[in-house]
């Protein structure tokens, strides 16, 4: 075993390290560019390091000025929190029912949950948008969903299609099944209701999976772009970080503002990166468990 480990180690090291450099260099280039002065980015010949780090302050300030970052951050945080909270709640409730309760229709509902994971998201973009536009009694709509902009002009619109997640339900069910039935039966004989069982017995036992699901959902929600772009065109007030930054990048002269865009990107990527590095053990285990993404 030890001999296999040391076989060809330098070839392996060379490969893995150069690959890792390839992975990290774009991130470093992003940080370095965010410190470059006007006209310095995009100038020939290419230079990796900025002339000095003094311009960084100006770029980050410009990013804050031009982007209304507080609002973008607020929208991103609100949407991400709503989605993550809702997915955790609905997944653990549904997972408990499917794993530990006996009732007619359980197999059918479980199959339905599995089926939802097979549909590609792009199939739903158009109908979801239309459903939100024609949501009854919201945003100036009448009972039949006519007359106004519906839910598309509310921050809820950012979250609606993501509030329940078939994969989350599947994940929770798989892990709740391993909670011993004897504990639940004993608690039931003591007069505990199902809600108490779910909250006091099952949830504490499945905490690691909850953390995994929370992380997976958080990262996806924070980074979501296409749906947020669509909703932001209907109402710029609910724009999220990725959409706002892309808008800035699309509308301005790249040689001048590239450092500002990069500064904004650094600011938007930072929270997730820190969270990921802090919790990466859970995250990576979660991805291996789920085998998805």
């Amino acid at each position: 075993m030890i001999r296999r480990r040391h076989r060809l180690p330098w070839v392996s090291y060379l490969l893995v390290v150069s690959g890792a450099v390839l992975m990290v260099v774009p991130f470093l280039d992003m940080v370095m560019t965010s410190f470059k002065g006007p006209g310095e980015a995009g100038r020939l010949p290419y230079r990796f390091l900025p002339r000095g780090f003094g311009f960084g302050f100006g770029n980050y300030r410009a990013a804050l000025d031009q982007l209304d970052l507080p609002v973008l951050f607020r929208n991103s945080v609100t949407a991400t929190a709503l989605i993550t909270g809702s997915v955790l709640l609905t997944s653990s409730l549904a997972g408990y029912a499917l794993a530990k309760l006996r009732f007619r229709g359980r197999d059918l509902i479980f199959r339905l949950v599995l089926t939802t994971m097979m549909f590609p998201p792009f199939l739903f973009f158009i109908p979801h948008f239309l459903i939100l536009v024609h949501w009854p009694l919201a945003g100036g709509n009448d009972l039949l969903g006519r007359g106004g902009a519906g839910l598309t002009v509310s921050i809820v619109a950012l979250t609606m299609p993501f509030l329940v997640n078939g994969f989350g339900i599947f994940l929770m069910r798989q892990f709740m099944i391993s909670v011993p039935d004897e504990i639940l039966e004993a608690a039931r004989l003591d007069g505990a209701g199902e809600f108490t069982l779910w909250w006091r017995v099952v949830l504490p036992q499945t905490k690691p999976v909850l953390v995994t699901l929370a992380l997976l959902t958080f990262v996806d929600a924070w980074n979501e772009y296409i749906w947020a772009l669509l909703i932001s065109t209907a109402d710029p007030g609910v724009m999220t970080l990725p959409v706002g930054i892309q808008l800035l990048q699309d509308h301005v002269d790249p040689t001048r503002t590239m450092p500002v865009v990069m500064a904004a990107l650094v600011l938007s990527v930072l929270p997730v990166l820190v969270l990921f590095l802090l919790l990466q053990k859970h995250y990576i285990r979660g991805v291996v468990l789920s085998g998805l993404k």
Binding site: P26, F27, D29, M30, V219, W222, N223, Y225, L241, P242, V243, I245, Q246, Q249, V261, M262, L265, S268, V269, V272, L273, F276, Y283
Partner: peptide, 10 residues
């Protein structure tokens, strides 16, 4: 864990 907007632009 990085948004596609960051990856694409960088």
């Amino acid at each position: 864990v990085t948004t596609v907007v960051a990856v694409g632009n960088v």
